[in-house]
Amino acid sequence: MTSQSILPLELRAVNFEVQGKRLIKDVSCTFEQNLRSIIIGPNGAGKSLFLRLCHGLLQPVSGQIIWQGGGDRDSARQQAMVFQRPVMLRRSVRANVDYALSIRSVARPEREAIIDEVLQRTGLSRFADYPAHALSYGEQQRLALARVWALKPQILFLDEPTASLDPPATHLVEQIIEAIHVAGTRIVMTTHDLGQARRIADEVLFMHRGRLLEHAPADQFFDKPKNEHARAFLGGELLWWHPKHPLHKPGSKKEICQ
């Protein structure tokens, strides 16, 4: 693997649509190296789609996604993603990590040491020979993290990795994400948990209805969000306001919307 970075990642006026419905609208931004970016926004804001576009699982209908760094020309090999619901292959915990390494053509003799290390660091060593499906949900998510950690990606996308985990499991997952970051991986993660966003974020991207409305350093965003929707979101208001329904402005106390 090359040590040269594929970052920064630049998005230029990226649009994405499904059956003519535009779900990501004119998103432009740049991800610099070695930061932790948290993407927040209400359900349906396009956070997950945004991650999949960056990761290359989806292709934009217009706009460009450019890896600016001079590193590996095959940028996909330097990326990894953890999904909200991890897919566990029906084999042992160890074999799950081994599979990921074999797909990235890591030589067999090198794999053992890598697998042992990541399982140990994610606290899964003693489950190494268990079927992955036998793990609890929190352990499965840790295995998903171990699996991507073994790949030593330059950038890691995480799609709400702690949704439906209890606080202790969430804490463990956050610790692992931190450790992966310290080891030199760029983190881009979505979450619904504002507390988590505050704990992890170096910078925050706020999305609403397919648009990137604010992209700011974490301190600045949480102290003084510039965007009114972001303010409403941080204030715990429901974001059902729509320009076509001016009655339902942020802050109004109407409970039902069309």
Binding site: L57, A76, R77, F83, R91, A100, R104
Partner: peptide, 21 residues
């Protein structure tokens, strides 16, 4: 599909994986 593509598996690599799983 998403998980295997994310790991970098080609459809030819995915085929035996899916049969085994």
């Amino acid at each position: 599909e998403e998980q295997l593509r994310s790991l970098g598996a080609t459809p030819w690599q995915a085929l035996p994986t899916l049969l085994w799983d």
